[in-house]
Amino acid sequence: MATVDFGGVTKTVCLAYTPDAGIGDYTIIHAGFAIAILDEQAALESLELFEQLGIVSATTDEIAP
């Protein structure tokens, strides 16, 4: 069992399914269990992709006849 901080709110959860989780990891919690460790790199890449989308389509708009 471990304490998870949900952004100012803490709850005790079971880490049996995420044995590799360490202090400082972000996890996905469901029904009192951590079911996945969040991949921060992947999260940042997704956000970066969304940023790019905007820029790419804006550029496309500009060069469109």
Binding site: F6, G7, G8, V9, K11, I29
Partner: peptide, 9 residues
């Protein structure tokens, strides 16, 4: 934010 977090889970 704490209310939002608690409501989240």
């Amino acid at each position: 934010p704490e209310v939002r977090a608690a409501c989240g889970f």
